[in-house]
Simulated assay, not measured.
Amino acid sequence: MYIQNPYFMQPQPQSMDEWYQQQRYLEEQRKQSMEVQTAYQKAWATASVKDAAEDRSFQRKEYYEERKYKRNQERKEKQRALAEMVKIDGEGRLTIVTENLSVAAIPRTFTNMQKPVLDELIRLSNPEEIIFRVQCTVGVKNTTVFLEQAKVGTTSYLTKKFMEHGITFYVPNSKMHYFTHQLFALLCQSDHDKRYLPDKPGWIKLSNKKWIFWKEDRLTWKALQKKI
């Protein structure tokens, strides 16, 4: 029986050329692997630096936006704190004074109306019906303005009625209604008279059950309607 020599079963050794080729191939693979790893590390480092820069930029942006927002809020609060108020001085002159300023405010004349006085004219037979009478001076002339209670809340009503009687307001049109309403509110808040008017002359019964005679030359509710 033939038995094969074990020597011939072992792999044959490579030639020197093949061995060198294999080593060069392995070296090239190692270099490529190192290059890939180096490139990856550089890319990672670059990305990290970029991310850090973007993060700092975002933080700075947030910081400045927050400062801007706070400054805007502070400015709005200061503007809201400032209030332009209508005042009547001791001589009856009407002025506008800006309140809450850091310096002393100088009153500014805003109309040719002076010494305004308001009273309420109330219909005796129906006290819910009221006419406001504003007596004032315009220049050297005495002027009387009658205002219907049902209309004084209308935006342009007060301004229109005052201007019909030669009263001028030295303010921008955008603020005119604001100041005329403020003026009217100021007059209403001050002490003023309330007068009850009968519909017509003659004997009238008062709320205290007493009777009085209302002369024809006295103002009545019917006559008042012609003055509005």
Rank of each mutant, 00 (worst) to 15 (best):
residue 222 K to E: 05
residue 191 D to G: 15
residue 148 E to F: 03
residue 39 A to S: 14
residue 46 T to H: 12
residue 103 V to Y: 15
residue 163 M to N: 04
residue 126 N to A: 15
residue 180 T to W: 07
residue 136 C to T: 04
residue 218 R to Y: 07
residue 93 R to H: 11
residue 165 H to S: 00
residue 41 Q to D: 11
residue 86 V to Y: 09
residue 196 Y to A: 01
residue 99 E to W: 11
residue 195 R to K: 10
residue 40 Y to E: 15
residue 185 A to S: 10
residue 116 P to I: 00
residue 98 T to R: 07
residue 193 D to V: 05
residue 224 L to P: 01
residue 2 Y to A: 15
residue 79 Q to P: 04
residue 85 M to I: 13
residue 6 P to T: 03
residue 117 V to K: 08
residue 174 S to C: 05
residue 227 K to H: 04
residue 17 D to L: 12
residue 99 E to L: 11
residue 194 K to P: 00
residue 94 L to N: 02
residue 175 K to P: 00
residue 116 P to G: 04
residue 192 H to F: 04
residue 102 S to R: 14
residue 138 V to L: 12
residue 142 N to E: 12
residue 56 R to G: 06
residue 51 D to I: 06
residue 136 C to D: 01
residue 55 D to L: 13
residue 29 Q to I: 00
residue 46 T to C: 12
residue 132 F to W: 14
residue 213 F to E: 10
residue 7 Y to M: 10
residue 30 R to L: 15
residue 62 E to K: 09
residue 18 E to R: 15
residue 204 I to T: 00
residue 174 S to G: 02
residue 123 R to M: 06
residue 219 L to K: 00
residue 165 H to T: 00
residue 84 E to Q: 10
residue 125 S to F: 04
residue 161 K to W: 07
residue 137 T to V: 13
residue 218 R to N: 08
residue 112 N to T: 04
residue 189 Q to W: 08
residue 150 A to V: 12
residue 221 W to L: 01
residue 166 G to N: 06
residue 31 K to L: 10
residue 133 R to C: 05
residue 102 S to M: 14
residue 137 T to P: 05
residue 117 V to P: 02
residue 210 K to T: 11
residue 192 H to V: 00
residue 150 A to E: 14
residue 175 K to M: 02
residue 164 E to H: 02
residue 209 K to D: 15
residue 222 K to Q: 04
residue 90 G to Y: 11
residue 142 N to W: 08
residue 115 K to D: 10
residue 142 N to Q: 11
residue 112 N to I: 02
residue 106 I to Q: 13
residue 205 K to Y: 04
residue 227 K to N: 04
residue 210 K to H: 12
residue 49 V to N: 08
residue 73 Q to I: 03
residue 149 Q to C: 09
residue 222 K to T: 04
residue 153 G to I: 01
residue 131 I to P: 05
residue 1 M to V: 08
residue 47 A to M: 08
residue 114 Q to G: 08
residue 72 N to Y: 09
residue 63 Y to H: 08
residue 164 E to W: 02
residue 23 Q to M: 15
residue 180 T to L: 05
residue 30 R to E: 13
residue 16 M to R: 10
residue 47 A to V: 07
residue 112 N to P: 03
residue 184 F to C: 00
residue 69 Y to K: 15
residue 32 Q to K: 15
residue 91 E to D: 09
residue 179 F to D: 01
residue 48 S to Y: 06
residue 48 S to W: 06
residue 128 E to L: 12
residue 152 V to F: 01
residue 53 A to M: 13
residue 163 M to G: 02
residue 64 Y to N: 07
residue 25 Y to F: 13
residue 195 R to D: 05
residue 51 D to E: 09
residue 221 W to F: 03
residue 25 Y to Q: 14
residue 109 T to W: 12
residue 94 L to E: 02
residue 72 N to F: 09
residue 49 V to H: 08
residue 135 Q to P: 02
residue 129 E to F: 08
residue 29 Q to E: 09
residue 29 Q to S: 05
residue 52 A to G: 14
residue 190 S to D: 03
residue 166 G to K: 02
residue 177 H to Q: 13
residue 202 G to V: 00
residue 60 R to T: 11
residue 114 Q to E: 09
residue 227 K to T: 01
residue 86 V to D: 03
residue 29 Q to K: 07
residue 81 A to Y: 14
residue 1 M to G: 14
residue 109 T to P: 10
residue 81 A to W: 12
residue 5 N to C: 14
residue 56 R to C: 06
residue 140 V to F: 07
residue 154 T to Y: 15
residue 48 S to Q: 08
residue 89 D to Q: 04
residue 22 Q to P: 06
residue 133 R to N: 03
residue 79 Q to C: 07
residue 110 F to M: 08
residue 33 S to Q: 14
residue 72 N to S: 11
residue 38 T to W: 11
residue 200 K to P: 01
